[in-house]
């Protein structure tokens, strides 16, 4: 088991959140917002793309949310939250100036150093774009370190697309291939309708399978089908990285909730190479 990249300072109580304030809020879709958080005291929580924070709403509870911002400034955090449960509903309803507790960062991020000199294929489904956005912003800031960069993104419908401003910007970059597809649309949508795994066939000439690092995040079924398409084209299992989601109460490897086989998703993940997941990937309800 690897050490988490964020070793806690000795003696600190890892259960106590650090105070942050909402400094900005952007509505992404009907049920999803992006919160910008800032430490009032200038505390910073240096993170890597793919890691996550535990966000705490006073008196309500705590949830793991991936970082989706660029790790350039560690005192500003961006988190995209979908209102589905009691805590995320409250998070999504926070306003500018509201207090939020933050613990983290936790877990293993995307293998961006490993990907240097390689083609990079980012495959996102739904809210899975949030953790990949952080990786992409980092990659674009150091674009010359990578070969071809391709982003495939599938959403439920045009109204469910996240980060529209970013998508427009990315669409215009000559050094980035972005393909967007939706599951359903009306006749006003002029883009692709279909599923993300099917996009891989369209871009198969834009990556060299054995020199490609694939970063995949989305619902489990979408990831399963994506992995198969990548394997069919010869991308090795140890270069396919997935970000997994599990119930988490502590994020410290202590509460036992996030186990997947021998792994604790909170510390061995959330980003893991498929080669480590493969022995258990066909086992249901593991």
């Amino acid at each position: 088991m690897r050490e988490p990249s964020s070793a806690p300072p000795p003696g600190a109580n890892p259960y106590i959140p650090v105070p942050f304030r909402v400094s900005g809020r952007r509505r992404e879709t009907a049920d999803t917002v992006t919160l910008r958080l800032r430490s009032p005291t200038g505390d910073s929580l240096p993170f890597k793309p793919g890691q996550f924070m535990m966000l705490y709403v006073f008196g309500v509870g705590e949830v793991p949310i991936s970082v989706s911002g660029r790790p350039r400034r560690a005192d500003i955090l961006e988190h995209t939250v979908r209102a589905v449960g009691p805590v995320t509903r409250r998070l999504a309803a926070l306003r500018r100036g509201d207090w939020v507790g933050v613990r983290g960062p936790f877990g293993q991020g995307w293998p961006l150093a490993l990907a240097e000199g390689f083609d990079v294929l980012l495959v996102a489904g739904g809210l899975g774009l949030a953790p990949l956005r952080s990786a992409l912003l980092q990659i674009l800031a150091q674009r010359d370190r990578y070969r071809r960069v391709t982003v495939l993104y599938g959403a439920r419908s045009p109204a469910d697309l996240l980060y529209r401003l970013d998508l427009t910007r990315w669409q215009q970059r000559p050094d980035l291939e972005l393909r967007v597809t939706v599951d359903r649309a009306d006749e006003r949508w002029r883009g692709q309708i279909g599923v993300v795994p099917a996009l891989i066939a369209q871009v198969e000439r834009q990556f060299e399978p054995t020199r490609t690092v694939a970063l995949v995040c989305g619902p489990e079924v979408m990831m399963r089908f994506t992995v198969r398409e990548l394997q069919k084209r010869g991308v090795p299992d140890d270069l396919i990285y997935l970000s997994l989601e599990r119930n988490m109460k502590c994020a410290l490897g202590l509460c036992g909730h996030c186990q997947f086989g021998p792994a604790f998703i909170c510390k061995d993940g959330p980003v893991m190479p498929f080669s480590r997941l493969a022995p258990f990937s066909e086992i249901r309800e593991l």
């Binding site: 489904g125 739904g126 599938g154 469910d160 599951d183 279909g194 795994p197 989305g218």
Partner: peptide, 18 residues
């Protein structure tokens, strides 16, 4: 087959609310 597989996945509405 590819078209049918895609249609089946679309049916699942994977990104819809839980």
């Amino acid at each position: 087959a590819e078209r049918l597989k895609a249609a089946r996945l679309q049916l699942l509405d994977l990104y819809g609310p839980p």
